[in-house]
């Protein structure tokens, strides 16, 4: 049973073998390290790039125009800011060329907080990413979704920004990836590089299969009737736990968006129609937060379906996330905050 980093690695391997992926690159992405979170270990087309985010994204765009379906990594999303201009170009070049050039590329990058990463390893990027129109944006919360979304991202002729929640890269899910061994030790022995000298090591890949999660489709990870929680990434498992803990108090529906652009408005709308109560939950900072857009749309299109005011729970609008545990926990939504907010929404008189 794979963790999310292994799931991404297996999807990339599937892409190399079956989907024409020929260039996987980024800082420390090639041997010996295989990525700071090991997501590219053992991949035959993975290589190390110079420490140059603009060059990495520019290379990916040029390769995509040449039809190479590259997968490029920015080591942490915190380091993508000096290359936002290149991302914008990635996002707009199909449109500016009147559709003449497709842009089949994936940029993957670890996002968000939860690893005591302090100021430069805790950023989220959702609001900026979702404003670079023309680029799809996905963010899984389980290994199986990471696998299926990566395969969809590789197949897509549009640029896809694949956000990997840092805090979830080592977590495991409940569902097996088609073809992977159920025993996590067995999988580890097959595809994780050994400690020490790796120069002669080669992975033994399981025969993983074609499994895609369609981009633009959310998942109802917990069905319910009283309150809708719309979330993604690192907050998705927290919402799920909260929904389970509150089972005796109310029936919570958790929508794991999985795709931020395009987002599954139909799923969100159907759920809010049913519950009339909604919490948008994410870990990016307040003030032009992506959840704020969703609230505006909810109010515009569903005003008369709402029983109580829609809520947003998200990161506090500070310049960074402080290292001390108390600072990070105070800045970012934690499970007790989610529980408190859900109880409040449940008890709000309609």
């Amino acid at each position: 049973m794979a963790n999310m980093a292994q799931a991404i690695r297996m999807a990339l391997h599937y892409g190399e073998e079956n989907l024409g992926v020929r260039e996987i690159f980024g800082e420390d992405v090639g041997p010996p390290l295989g990525g700071v979170f090991t997501a590219t270990q053992g991949l035959k087309t993975a290589w190390n790039a110079p420490l140059d985010e603009r060059g990495i994204l520019g290379a990916a765009l040029g390769l995509a125009w040449a039809g190479f379906r590259p997968v490029a990594e920015v080591q942490f999303v915190d380091y993508i800011f000096n290359a936002v201009d290149m991302l914008k170009l990635i996002a707009n070049s199909t449109w500016t060329s009147g559709g003449l050039y497709k842009t089949p590329l994936v940029v993957m990058t670890p996002t968000g907080s939860g690893i005591h990463g302090s100021i430069y390893h805790s950023h989220s990027f959702d609001s900026i990413a979702t404003k670079l129109h023309g680029m799809k944006v996905v963010c899984p919360s389980t290994p199986i979704d990471a696998y299926g979304l990566m395969i969809s991202a590789i197949k897509d002729d549009n640029p896809v920004l694949f956000l990997k929640p840092k805090a979830l890269l080592r977590t495991r899910g409940a569902e097996l990836i088609p073809g992977e061994p159920a025993d996590e030790k067995e999988l580890k022995a097959m595809i994780d590089a050994p400690i020490g000298d790796r120069s002669k090591w080669k992975p033994k890949w399981p025969k993983v299969g074609d499994y895609s999660v369609p981009i633009g489709k959310a998942k109802i990870s917990h069905a319910g009737t009283d309150v809708t929680v719309v979330t993604h990434g690192r907050m998705a498992p927290i919402a799920l736990e909260a929904a389970k803990e509150l089972e005796s108090e109310g029936s919570i529906e958790v929508i794991d968006m999985r795709s931020l652009i395009p987002y599954d408005w139909d799923a969100i709308k159907a759920s809010i129609k049913k519950t009339g109560r909604v919490l948008f939950l994410n870990e990016e900072t307040e003030i032009t937060n992506f959840g704020e857009h969703l609230i505006r749309r909810t109010v515009d299109e569903m005003f008369y379906d709402l029983k109580v005011r829609p809520r947003l729970l998200c990161g506090k609008a500070t310049p960074g996330i402080g290292l001390a545990t108390v600072l990070e926990n105070f800045t970012q939504p934690q499970k007790p905050d989610v529980l408190r907010m859900l109880r409040e929404i449940l008890s709000d008189p309609a």
Binding site: L57, A59, G62, L63, A66, P70, D85, L89
Partner: peptide, 25 residues
């Protein structure tokens, strides 16, 4: 596309970054 002139942008110098990619190709 027929003559490999890749999309041009009004941003100065970004073409030197995309040239890396077509150069690799």
């Amino acid at each position: 596309p027929e003559i490999n002139i890749v999309p041009m942008s009004p941003t100065i110098e970004t073409q030197y970054a995309t040239a890396i990619g077509t150069g690799i190709a």
